[in-house]
């Protein structure tokens, strides 16, 4: 047991950080209304081997650490799916959007995908449907990700992976991205309450704010370390669902508290906070949000006895 990064993990994160810094754009602080998929960044991360650590001697924990760091930078890239879910599928199609059979509603990256990964838990089947065999309806990008509604028209090609494993890896990737984006939003908020002065002193000196910030810190830390542990035990379904549950509720909490502590500046487009918070709501409700993840925890827990 070691809760600190080891040398290899530090080196990987350092290198990924350098790559991200290289791609940081001048207008990157603003959420774009017509975001473009970050093809160049994805290619460079892939060429350096960072997107496939799971299949090249690394662990799911390494992949989660990378996804968390990339999610802090908020490139338009489904980093969690790519580093955590996709390697387990052993398929060629990418970008690939996971889609839970029987659910409706718009999904992230629906109109950037080449294929849809249809996961049917009841029948325990996993299949790939080419995007040409899907109805696709774009649903805008107001919340930081390109969103579209998908409707597969065919059953697709089946994959040799258990539906439960796919769901666990999906939930884990979701938790990792939430921890990254929420961690960045929280760090930004802590800095803001140190800098912002009212009544002649930083607002972070007021007990009302200090205690709320400390509560946020506890929730962020809980989600972070549970996600790390779930990664180490991946694809354990209970741990992954628990990580997603804690992360999704934390995402809501960070959204509300970060905006409240920032005041009106927080919802201007010139100020960077919204880049993280808007996305947190998309991530927080993916797969049905904390309610659905919580039900999955009970299901997996009861099944494990």
């Amino acid at each position: 047991m070691d809760t600190a990064l080891d040398g290899t993990q530090e080196a990987i994160l350092g290198a990924v950080g350098n790559l991200l810094a290289k791609h940081r754009s001048v207008d990157g602080s603003v959420l774009k209304r017509d975001p473009e998929y970050a093809c160049d960044l994805e290619r460079e991360l892939a060429e350096a081997g960072f997107l496939d650590v799971v299949t090249s001697g690394g662990s799911y924990l390494d992949a989660v650490l990378i996804a968390e760091l990339v999610a802090r930078e908020l490139p338009v890239l489904p980093i969690g799916w790519r580093t955590i879910l996709w390697p387990a599928l052993h398929c060629e199609v990418w970008p690939l959007v996971p889609w839970k059979a029987g659910t409706g509603g718009p999904v992230r990256f629906g109109d950037s995908a080449r294929g849809v990964l249809v996961i049917d838990e009841e029948r325990d089947t996993v299949a790939i449907v080419d995007i040409g065999d899907c109805e696709v309806r774009s649903a805008g990008a107001a919340w930081g990700y390109p969103i579209a509604e998908l409707r597969p028209r065919v059953e697709g090609r089946s994959l040799a992976i258990a539906a439960a494993d796919c769901m666990a890896l999906w939930r884990l990737s979701l938790a990792a991205e939430i921890v990254g984006a929420a961690g960045a939003a929280f760090d930004h908020t802590v800095q803001y309450i140190k800098d912002r002065k009212q009544f002649g002193r930083p607002i972070g000196g007021n007990q009302a704010i200090r205690h709320r910030a400390a509560r946020l810190a506890v929730e962020v830390e809980k989600a972070r370390y549970l996600t790390y542990e779930a990664a180490w035990r991946a694809p354990d379904p209970e741990m992954a669902a628990a990580a997603a549950t804690v992360a999704a509720s934390m995402a809501e909490f960070v959204f509300q508290e970060a905006h409240q502590m920032h005041g009106a500046i927080g919802y201007t487009r010139e100020f960077p906070l919204h880049r993280w918070t808007m996305r947190l709501r998309v991530l927080g409700k993916e797969l049905g949000g904390a309610v659905a993840h919580g039900i999955a925890v009970t299901g997996a827990h009861a099944a494990a006895g």
Partner: peptide, 17 residues
């Protein structure tokens, strides 16, 4: 199931920290 699951998740998170 939801309420129990969220409580179980909170317990796992407490252990993780």
């Amino acid at each position: 199931a939801e309420r129990i699951g969220r409580a179980i998740a909170a317990c796992h998170a407490a252990r993780a920290v």
